[in-house]
Design a binder for these strands. Structure first.
Length: 149
DNA sequence: GCCAACGTTGGC
DNA sequence: GCCAACGTTGGC
């Protein structure tokens, strides 16, 4: 067995990423199977992208329109330089692949009403576009979305 | 190194 | 479409 194909030694980390559905909706990712997560221009979000490992799980949030967690994706390729960035700037991308849509979208309104999600970055750091979520938060969101992995 | 101005995000 | 919040930039 090769290093690359073997299961990761540690459990996958969990993240939440935002996208405006009018720009790139979860349905577009399902259609494309995989996409490059480019255009991040915020240092903290970039650093989070760089901390992602292949196989990490991503919750997909629709901002502005919909305002709900709508699906699950996974990290298909770890961070590499963002081809859409100016050559003299230091930005990164990862490739993400669709896993499955939530049975039920979990709206921001629901999230705000759920005590277990009071510390979710989506609520406490409303402008951050790539953030870590805890396993407990991840599980709570899947449960609200009537979805299992 | 501070902080005012600016630009962008994203909820409403 | 507005505007509050806030991350980033740039003048000093």
């Amino acid at each position: 067995m090769t290093r690359k194909k073997s299961a990761p030694a540690t459990a996958p980390q969990r993240w939440l990423v935002k996208s405006e559905p009018s720009v790139y909706a979860f349905a577009a990712l399902v259609r494309d199977k995989k996409t490059r997560w480019d255009g991040v221009r915020n240092f903290e979000a970039r650093n989070n992208l760089r901390a992602m490992k292949q196989g990490d799980l991503l919750l997909y949030y629709h901002s502005n329109e919909g305002k709900a967690v709508v699906g699950i994706a996974t990290v298909a390729r770890e961070a590499y330089p963002d081809p859409s960035a100016p050559a003299d700037e230091d930005w990164s991308v990862v490739d993400v692949a669709a896993v499955k849509a939530f049975t039920l979208p979990v709206t921001l309104e629901t999230i705000k009403k759920t005590p277990a999600l009071a510390k979710l970055g989506l609520v406490t750091r409303p402008r951050l576009s790539v953030m870590k979520v805890t396993p407990a938060e991840f599980d709570a969101l899947l449960a609200l979305g009537k979805t299992t992995l």
